[in-house]
Amino acid sequence: MIYIRTDMNDIIATGHVMRCLAIAEAARAQGEDIMFLLADPQACSLLDKHGFPYTILHTCWDDMDSELPIIGKVIEEQRIEKILVDSYQVTPNYLNALTQMVKTLYIDDLNAFEYPVNALVCYANYGKTFYQNRNYQRTNLFLGTQYVPLRRNFERCGKKQINPSAENLILLSGGTDKYNMLECLLESIEIKKYKDIQVICGVYYPKYDYICGKYSGHQNIHVYKAVQDIEKHMEHADLAVAAGGTTLYELCALGVPTIAYAIADNQLDNVKTFHKDGIIDYAGDVREENVVGKINSLLNLYYGNCKLRQQKSEKMQGLVDGKGAWRIAEILSQM
């Protein structure tokens, strides 16, 4: 049995749970039983849809030290042997205490401190050089994009077909769109230029009904919320604009040329490395600059430049093979 400790809500959005779901699905396909451990019921409906059981700890998601007595009791009662932890709220004390009780694997992209765990995964494009100044003699490190935890739908994707013009656009902003990027982009782009514009809203996006109403008269704009088949929407697109989370790696697997922007500190290394490596263009940090103008300039650059989009697409698919979740599940099984 593999246990997974993670959370989602309107503050931290859905990213942690979604990548854990990808790993859980891979582990289930390998014959493992899975149990999620949650602070509260926020993720229950999503886990129900995917058929995964869970235990609610009834704790504070942002005060994990205080849950140690409770999770310790659950570990004893359910005879837990190993836990995957995916949360930015962990502390050295929490992970150290947990690792004294069970075998631990932690998913990281912050390098906030030296994590006292048995195994550490950093799947970011900068992962292989991220921990050079840390002393991880007792921790097994699994670093690099071969460990990007994507659902099996992103595995073995065929070569992306690049059309002469980027007439099909997809806009993605993560779980909450805290900085209102979807609306800003729709207000600024040349809508009539595109045959189809897909707007993908996260589960916690507060303006879904408003956006649907505002653009209901545009036959080429289609607004979706909390889609379960995101890969189909991405496959249809010639070009994407997306925030700098795991979504970028999904777009890489499918080879969809992408323009990225950052909305959080933990995305900065990610988007900047993509840009430096010539894989995904970075338009800027929405918290510090007006990135919409830069995005529009890049959209115009990409629109009719088939060769440029072909080059980017090939680099993207060369980086991510979609098998990362399977590899992490194997690591957990062998712990």
Rank of each mutant, 00 (worst) to 15 (best):
E187Q: 11
Q78K: 15
K294I: 04
Y106S: 02
Q310K: 12
E289S: 08
G144C: 08
I75G: 14
M316V: 01
E314R: 10
I230D: 03
N125Y: 03
R327Y: 06
L47G: 05
A243Y: 00
Q132K: 12
G174T: 15
T176Y: 04
V227D: 02
I197Q: 09
Y3F: 13
Q146P: 02
E250W: 10
Y215L: 01
C306N: 04
M64T: 15
N133C: 08
K214A: 11
C306A: 09
P92S: 05
L186D: 05
L268H: 05
Q310L: 10
F113A: 02
T99V: 02
Y106M: 06
V291E: 08
I80T: 13
N266H: 14
G245N: 10
A226M: 06
I328C: 11
T14R: 12
K49M: 05
F142D: 07
L150C: 08
L57A: 14
A226V: 00
Y261H: 06
I23T: 03
I80G: 08
P116W: 10
I211Y: 13
R134A: 14
V102W: 03
L84F: 08
K193C: 07
K323E: 08
M101G: 06
D65M: 02
P116T: 14
L254P: 12
I170P: 02
D229C: 04
E32C: 07
A39Q: 10
D108Y: 01
D109Q: 06
E77K: 15
I197E: 09
L37N: 14
K193L: 09
V256G: 02
G202E: 04
L143T: 02
M35D: 05
G324V: 13
Q310S: 11
S87Q: 05
K193D: 07
D65I: 10
K128L: 11
A283S: 14
H218D: 04
L308Y: 14
V320K: 03
D277R: 08
C60F: 06
K160C: 00
P164N: 09
Y194A: 01
Q132A: 13
Y303P: 04
E76T: 07
C252K: 01
E187I: 01
D63S: 10
A39F: 15
D285T: 05
